[in-house]
């Protein structure tokens, strides 16, 4: 197997006195779609926040392309090729769709190609093209999620972190969003996904990790996890 694109090695993280992560070790290989599943508050979001530099790990390292990124600031991590689509979209509500996308290409590496990448994103998300002048805060939930993904792709990342993209969306829209994520993965972008929607998340993934109370308790191929007794009982109610 090729060298991993991302490795977290023994990462722990705390919020004040509360320890959110214990010894999280995971790998993501180039071209994979990997999903972290787990209950609310299990530490999935914190794991993504450690990778993108928003939370500093208390111990352990985060390696991206073979270099330790656990001590560099979030804006430089974006520059190196990691884009993070945060939970609940976090758009710039009083800016148009176009301006949100333009901000995605803020970093020096992406800025000169802003026009081309924006056209690419509008081809990929035709609905956003129709709404390009509309304020992001006035879009539907599904459209906002598309903007959040397109905005992250504007930075031309090697690794895309996606936090609960299905949150608060109607089932039909969820399907649409996951289809887009699958296509992003097929286009060569590596994806690390966090989902409570276990079936949809794992069904587009190559591999998965189960996070419980800040610890990785299970890992394996997505198909195996979907068939696993514990996963079926705890997350699928079967």
């Amino acid at each position: 197997m090729t060298a991993p694109l991302l490795t977290t090695d023994g990462v722990s993280a705390t919020y004040g006195d509360f320890q959110a992560l214990f010894d999280i070790t995971l790998q993501v290989h180039p071209g994979e779609i990997v999903t972290l599943i787990g209950a609310n508050g299990a530490g999935k979001t914190t794991t993504l926040r450690v990778i993108s530099g928003l939370v500093r790990p208390k111990s352990g390292t985060v390696c991206f392309l073979g270099e330790d990124i656990s001590k560099i600031p979030p804006d430089e991590i974006v520059e190196r090729g990691v884009s993070h689509v945060p939970e609940a979209r976090q758009l710039f509500p009083y800016m148009s769709v176009e301006e949100n996308l333009a901000l995605g290409a803020y970093i020096g590496r992406a800025r000169p190609k802003l026009k081309e990448t924006m056209d690419e994103q509008f081809d990929f998300f035709p609905r956003l093209k129709e709404r390009r002048k509309q304020l992001a805060g006035t879009l539907s939930g599904g459209e906002q999620q598309m903007v959040a993904i397109a905005r992250a792709l504007m930075a031309q990342p090697k690794l895309l972190l996606l936090d609960e993209p299905s949150l608060g969306l109607a089932p039909k829209v969820v399907e649409e969003v996951f289809e887009k994520i699958r296509q992003v993965g097929n286009s060569g972008v590596t994806v690390l996904l966090v989902e409570q929607n276990v079936v949809d998340g794992l069904s587009i993934s190559d591999r998965g990790y189960v996070v419980e109370n800040g610890v990785i308790t299970l890992q394996g191929k997505a198909k195996e996890l979907l068939a696993n007794e514990h996963v079926r009982a705890a997350y699928l109610g079967l």
Partner: peptide
């Protein structure tokens, strides 16, 4: 507009 998201843009 969104202090949390700004650094994720590389700002």
């Amino acid at each position: 507009q969104n202090r949390y998201a700004a650094p994720l843009m590389g700002i």
